[in-house]
Design a protein around this nucleic acid. Structure first.
Length: 376
RNA sequence: GGGGGGAUACCGAAGCGGUCAAACGGGGCAGACUGUAAAUCUGUUGGCUCAGCCUUCGGAGGUUCGAAUCCUCCUCCCCCCA
């Protein structure tokens, strides 16, 4: 994997770059649609590729390990072959499930025992097994095993958790370096900064992660309920420490406004379930603000979903029709909304990139953020 | 023609003398959702000058301190037998 910087904004830390993987190039800043269980929910891969114009998508170690399981994954020849996505893939390590499934797992120095949300069976995840699983899934970018700490999180817990994550990182790096890719293309390992909302911990963590000289670095443990300002503060602090010549990935973020603000702080990569999950639940993101398509006010609105949108669904269908799909619980509604939102997210980051290269990112960002948060 | 059952809020359906503006579903309306246990979850759903008051349980009377609940008549619906 390679990362080349292509340009920088003058008034902020925003930058435009290019990540080169064996499955193709990724132009940063980039948003990566989440495909937890091997699919971007409710969207055909064809549309993820041609309509959304996604350049890289996610998969999830915990979920894919439990279902379909490693045997199937290996027989398929890896996730790319299995789901038909021939561009880059990044897999999360299961570190988020340490947080989201905290009531059904036990964590200690050695790793985490999860009790499956599917059948209750117990499964041991540790830095070594998580590297092995991600080798088998075959993502281009694999994440270190970490604990995504909750918010709020007391200092002692955050410090101890961060230190465990750091020790796990060393084990991940060792095991990763002692193993080989299984399908003939290279994989990169990204470590993850933790430290909750404590500046001193974030600083220590960022310095620790930076010292590993990885091919890219991630910021975790944010967007878990803390105020936006706190998230930006931590992101800014960490971006100032992580190496400039490596991509920075802010995990789990976020709203369209979160993306633009974080890009201005120097983040290159994002992923979030928001465009798909909120889309399935009737929320549409547009350049002019947020639409709750289930609201009665759209009942008689026969204008296109988004006249300025880049997806074919934006002009193919009307607001009144899409609302009807949701009210009638037709699955096409979730499909249309997911596709629209993802297309919008990818348009947004592509536009951000254009403005960075053009040199007027900050002005554009400030203008956009005001519009993005409006309720239509 | 004879016998039986039923009419409750937007719909379905509990309630069978006071604690009933009325359970529960559905529908409606609104909100939430940030490395996906989520096509999910939460709130709300008679009116108002709202810690109180007013109107409501097919219609009209009546019994009672008090009725969606008991009695009389009426209207409509369903089932069975001729």
């Amino acid at each position: 994997m390679k990362f080349n910087l292509k340009g920088k904004d003058k008034k902020s830390s925003a930058r435009a770059g290019e990540i080169i993987t064996d499955h193709g190039k990724i132009q940063t800043p980039i948003f990566m649609p989440v495909g937890t269980a091997g699919s971007v929910k409710a969207v055909h891969m064809k549309d993820v590729k041609d309509d959304v114009k996604a350049q890289i998508i996610l998969g999830n170690t915990y979920h894919l390990y439990l279902r379909p399981g490693l045997k199937v994954m290996e027989q398929a020849g890896g996730l790319h072959k299995f789901n038909g996505w021939d561009r880059p893939i990044l897999t999360d390590s299961g570190g988020y499930q340490v947080y989201s499934l905290s009531d059904r797992r036990k964590l200690d120095e050695s790793g985490v025992v999860f009790q499956s949300h599917i059948d209750g069976s117990r499964h041991n995840f540790n830095p070594e097994s998580v590297m092995d699983i991600q080798r088998t899934i075959g993502a281009d970018i694999v994440m270190a095993f970490d604990e995504c700490t909750p918010y709020p999180c007391d200092y002692d817990y955050a410090k101890n958790s961060m230190e465990i994550t750091h020790r796990w990182l060393d084990r991940c790096i060792t095991h990763f370096n002692n193993t080989e890719p299984k399908y003939g293309y290279s994989q990169a390992l990204f470590p993850i900064v933790q430290g909750s909302t404590y500046r001193d911990l974030r600083k220590i963590s960022a310095e620790t992660i930076a010292s590993k000289n990885a091919e890219g670095n991630a910021i975790g443990g944010l967007s878990v309920g803390e105020p936006h300002e706190m998230m930006y503060e931590m992101t800014e602090l960490v971006c100032g420490i992580l190496p400039e010549d490596k991509p920075r990935y802010l995990m789990g973020v976020g709203t369209p406004a979160n993306l633009l603000e974080s890009i201005s702080l120097g983040v290159d990569m994002f992923d979030c379930v928001m465009p798909t999950r909120n889309g399935r639940n009737g929320m549409l993101f547009t350049k002019n603000g947020i639409i709750n398509i289930k609201n009665q006010k759209w009942m008689h609105d026969f204008s296109p979903i988004d006249e300025e949108g880049t997806s074919f669904v934006d002009t193919q269908y009307t607001k009144a029709y899409l609302r009807h799909m949701f009210v009638a619980k037709e699955m096409l509604g979730a499909m249309i909304a997911s596709l629209h939102n993802l297309s919008f997210y990818l348009w947004l980051v592509a536009e951000a990139r254009n403005h960075i290269l053009k040199g007027d990112f900050s002005e554009w960002k400030n203008m956009m953020v005001k519009k993005l948060v409006q309720r239509l």
